[in-house]
Design a binder for these strands. Structure first.
Length: 444
RNA sequence: GGUCCCGUAGCCAAGUGGCUAAGGCAAUAGACUGCAACUCUGUGAUCACCAGUUCGAAUCUGGUCGGGACCUCCA
């Protein structure tokens, strides 16, 4: 299994730290608003990564945080005349609802910044003690100039960054690249620390959480490519000071989702919220996974319609196969997959093993659909159809696709057989009536 | 101004040095069908452009044009 490691910028064989285990952390949302469809991409992609590792037999510990301390949350709280906690509780619930809406798992570890304040303060103190941080008028900054390998992850060198630094000069900083660890403030919710009252910057939380939860270097750290700099760069800088390692063996970054021509972001105002999305989650997942995770995706109605069509084709076949097997009392899994289908399943694994090449994996699914349709029309071989279903079930479980099927009660089975008989006997009026009934029941 | 990414058929999208450049959608021609729907089969690209490296390039190098990201909160 190969993964593209953003840290080394190359494809690497995946080797877990602990045999059979995967420890992974994905940067979660700052909970001051509903998430948009661009935020859903890492949710869906890393959920797929988790599912695939589990499919491969790994025991996965998946952690993703909630940033529930932030200026934007405070602004929102003041604006709505509520407490920060009311705001963040509301948007955490909303987030989890959206995660479910796109068929992603919510049973992962969800640390919140407010629960980690002691750790964060302790970490900042340690950095001060080691002189990798300094205080100015109650603020605490990280001393980037002293950090080792700063810029390695995002492939930038400090001098270029300095040259490119925009005019936004903070007189308090020794160096414009230094980032805030602690900000002195009296507005909104604040916390007490040895270095004064205020709140933490957002770069320390991930390090503190990962260290507390896992207690060591982890396998995978994921997030959107927009986080690579400065957020992940800053995380690594701190971890090198505190723990002398780069947090994760493999850094994974997903590309952005664009809408129309430009990028979608909260500040651009061209957002589509997940909660307002009115498409089948299966379609949205197919759409999201139809492009390799490191490439950007364009969100357009035309492409969405393509995957709508695609999903109808996939789910239609699944349903037909399911009904055939149900009629033949062959829904129970045999665990034996026919060689022809087994080779397709292996193609699927091969695609996924190659840095989660979901587009190619979807192509395998399409091959499977074609084959299934041929069997359905030509050989009617139930054993083969059973294998088709079983391979589809495997792929569905990794992609979190769900076709709407359930075993038929006896009278529906009879109805189906009656329909077939009516057609054979050329009693078309009767057949059409039965067909309409079956369609009403969602069997056809 | 600095750093970096991308440009494959009408649309989406694999492939990143070597047989005739996967696959899907759309289009079109056919087959199947009692009618619908579905389904299957056939049909399409000198890989933005130019120059170079190489026995050989969509794939590597340089340049041109076009699009985008980051350097500031952002998945």
């Amino acid at each position: 299994m190969k993964i593209f490691n953003s840290y080394t910028n190359q494809l690497e064989e995946f080797k877990p730290i602990h045999k059979g285990k995967v420890n992974m952390y994905v940067c979660g949302p700052t909970v001051y608003n509903y998430i948009h469809i661009g935020n859903a991409r890492p949710v869906i992609f890393f959920d797929t990564v988790r599912r695939y590792f589990e499919h491969r037999g790994y025991d996965v510990t998946y952690v993703s945080n909630f940033t529930d301390v932030d200026d934007k949350i405070i602004t929102k709280a003041i604006e709505l005349e509520k407490t920060e906690k009311e705001i963040t509780d509301h948007f955490i619930n909303a987030f989890l609802k959206d995660v479910e809406k796109v068929h992603s798992k919510t049973d992962y570890i969800q640390p919140r910044v407010t629960e980690y304040m002691d750790h964060i303060i302790d970490y900042i103190q340690q950095m001060l003690d080691k002189e990798f941080a300094y205080q100015v008028e109650g603020d605490v900054y990280f001393r980037v100039g002293k950090a080792r390998d700063y810029g390695y992850l995002s492939n930038q060198n400090i001098d270029d960054l300095k040259t490119g630094a925009r005019i936004h000069i903070n007189e308090k900083k020794e160096n414009p690249l230094d980032f805030t660890l602690w900000k002195k403030t009296e507005e909104g919710i604040t916390f007490d620390a040895p270095f004064g009252e205020g709140r933490p910057g957002w770069h320390t939380e991930c390090v503190a959480m990962i260290d507390d939860i896992f207690g060591e270097k982890i396998d995978i750290h994921g997030g959107g490519s927009g986080l690579m700099f400065p957020h992940h760069e800053n995380e690594i800088a701190q971890s090198l000071v505190l723990n002398n390692h780069t947090i994760a063996n493999y850094w994974m970054h997903n590309g952005l989702l664009n809408i129309g021509s430009g990028k979608m972001s909260k500040s651009e105002g061209n957002v589509i919220l997940v909660k307002d999305l009115e498409i089948d989650p299966n379609v949205f997942r197919l759409f999201t996974l139809s492009t390799h995770y490191r490439s950007p995706i364009q969100f357009t109605d035309e492409v969405l319609e393509t995957y709508q069509t695609e999903w109808e084709k996939i789910s239609r076949l699944y349903k037909q196969v399911f009904v055939k097997l149900d009629l033949g009392d062959m829904l129970q899994g045999s665990g034996r997959i026919h060689p022809d289908l087994l080779s397709l399943y292996h193609d699927f694994l091969e695609a996924m093993d190659n840095d989660f090449n979901t587009p190619n994996a979807i192509t395998v699914l399409q091959d499977l659909i074609k084959l299934g349709n041929q069997i359905l029309r030509q050989t009617h071989d139930l054993e083969l159809l059973k294998s088709v279903k079983e391979v589809m079930d495997e792929i569905f479980s990794v992609f979190a696709l769900t076709a709407d099927v359930s075993p038929m009660p006896k009278k529906d089975k009879q109805l189906y057989r009656d329909w077939q008989h009516a057609r054979q006997d050329k009693e078309f009026e009767k057949a059409d009536k039965l067909r309409a009934e079956l369609q009403d029941k969602g069997i056809l």
